[in-house]
């Protein structure tokens, strides 16, 4: 069974008399361990798709299954628990809490998961080691470079060993070289078995992932999978 499965998902916003179909009959499957990018210009519905996949929102119609749990009817408390245990987010603007130091930032998801202080400390150091920042644990986010901040955010996203990581324009605020480093880190994590969904408007960045999905006007307009190259199944 697929890790994430969307079946005829609609997300419709009512603005005045007008009906805006942010997602229009989308069906999609993401297998465990996949490295996939969702491409699309702004307003295409890719953010809406990511919000639904990330359990930040529920669809108007259709069925979404994540790790065997149907989330279209889940309560807000259940959604919060799913976000906490099964999902990691990485944002364009890093979204680190400026008042907390690096280690404390990484710790936050574990607090909501009810992990003991001792275990939190161990796992934080482990995660920081993974992103090569163990010697910056006591620094404030403001004292780090953009690339370092994003690596802290990635460590935070990984901390609860989520089933899937969503990265929303993770390189958008970084220069090309740093951005490449971050993408390499994602690739490495993918090799280690993480499921990663990269959301971007930049086809060049999307090119690093084996599978790409393009969204336009709320529909999947194009789907490509390097692993199936040569077959005529896609397109």
């Amino acid at each position: 069974m697929a890790l994430v499965e969307l079946e005829n998902v609609f997300k419709i916003y009512q603005v005045g008399d007008e009906e805006i179909r942010a997602l229009d009959d989308v069906s999609l499957k993401i297998e465990s361990g996949e490295f996939i990018s969702i491409i699309g210009p702004s307003g295409s519905g890719k953010s809406t798709l990511m919000h639904l996949l990330g359990c930040l929102d529920t669809p108007t119609r259709g069925k979404i299954t994540l790790d065997g749990i149907e989330i279209q009817n889940a309560s807000s408390v259940e959604l919060a628990a799913i976000r906490n245990r099964k999902i990691g987010f990485v944002f364009q603007s890093f979204n680190l809490l400026p008042k907390l130091n690096v280690a404390q930032n990484v710790e936050v998801p574990m607090i909501y998961a009810g992990v003991s202080a001792k275990e939190r400390k161990e796992r934080t150091m482990e995660a920081l080691k993974k992103v090569d920042l163990e010697n910056r644990a006591k620094h404030r986010p403001m004292q780090l470079s953009g690339g370092q901040q994003q690596r802290v955010a990635i460590a935070r996203a990984l901390i609860n060993q989520p089933r899937i990581i969503f990265a929303d324009e993770p390189t958008g605020n970084l220069d090309t070289i740093t951005g490449d480093n971050i993408l390499n880190l994602f690739r490495e994590l993918s090799h280690q078995g993480s499921t990663i969904v990269l959301v971007t408007h930049n086809p060049e960045i999307a090119a690093v992932t084996p599978r790409r999905i393009e969204i336009r006007d709320g529909k999947i307009s194009f789907s490509e999978d390097d692993r199936l190259a040569g077959t005529s199944l896609n397109k």
Binding site: S76, A80, N84, F89, Y112, R156
Partner: peptide
């Protein structure tokens, strides 16, 4: 918003 995305419930 961030805390909620990371799993904070409304109650938390």
């Amino acid at each position: 918003g961030l805390r909620k995305a990371m799993g904070a419930t409304d109650a938390a």
